[in-house]
Simulated assay, not measured.
Amino acid sequence: MWYVYIIRSINFPDQEYVGATEDLKRRIPEHNAGKSAHTSKFKPWQLVWYCAFPDKYKALAFEKYLKSHSGRAFAKKRL
């Protein structure tokens, strides 16, 4: 399974990050440990939403959509 997820910074609530991973239980602690250059300055993070996909490419396509302008609007309104 592949997961698309949204995390939100605890100290900077306006900061959100969308990502995809095969191991969600490992990935969130990695964000909080500062192992990602994109998220290290806004740690700690909390998981806001995730969705499981049986196919890697569908997960990556949905992640790309959520990072687009219309995808951000969809996530803000629906997720």
Rank of each mutant, 00 (worst) to 15 (best):
K67P: 00
I10H: 10
T21S: 12
P44I: 04
D14S: 13
I10R: 14
Q46R: 15
R26M: 07
K43N: 08
P29N: 08
S70D: 13
V18W: 05
F53L: 02
F53Q: 05
L24C: 08
L66M: 11
R78N: 11
E16W: 00
E22Q: 13
R8W: 08
D55N: 12
N11T: 10
G34L: 14
K64C: 12
V48E: 06
A37W: 01
K56I: 09
H69T: 12
K76S: 14
R26S: 08
K76N: 15
W49E: 03
D14F: 09
K56G: 05
K43L: 04
I28D: 00
Q15A: 02
R26N: 06
F74S: 04
H38M: 11
T21P: 08
V4H: 11
K67F: 03
R72I: 06
S36G: 05
V18I: 12
R78M: 06
R72Y: 07
A52M: 15
M1W: 15
M1I: 02
V4L: 05
S9A: 11
P29W: 06
F12W: 15
Y50Q: 10
T39I: 02
K76P: 04
S70V: 07
Y65M: 11
Y5P: 03
Y65F: 15
S68K: 04
A73Y: 13
A33W: 05
Y5R: 03
K41C: 10
I7E: 07
Y5L: 03
P54K: 11
F53P: 04
F12A: 10
P29Y: 08
L60Y: 15
P29C: 07
L79E: 06
A73H: 07
L60V: 13
P29S: 08
S68F: 04
Y3T: 00
M1Q: 13
S68V: 01
L24F: 04
Y57P: 00
A75N: 01
V18N: 12
A61H: 09
K67A: 09
P54Q: 10
D55Y: 12
H38K: 08
K43A: 14
N32K: 01
A61K: 11
F12G: 07
K25W: 02
I10N: 14
K56H: 03
A33T: 00
D23N: 14
I28R: 01
W49G: 05
R27E: 07
K56Q: 10
K67H: 08
H31V: 01
T39N: 05
R8E: 15
I28M: 03
G34H: 14
V48R: 03
I7N: 01
V48P: 07
P13G: 08
R72T: 14
Q15T: 06
G19E: 00
Y50R: 01
K58S: 15
G19L: 02
R78D: 09
F12D: 15
W2L: 01
K56P: 07
I28P: 03
S9H: 09
K41P: 10
W45T: 00
A33Y: 00
I28L: 14
L24E: 01
V4A: 12
L66W: 04
F74C: 13
V4M: 08
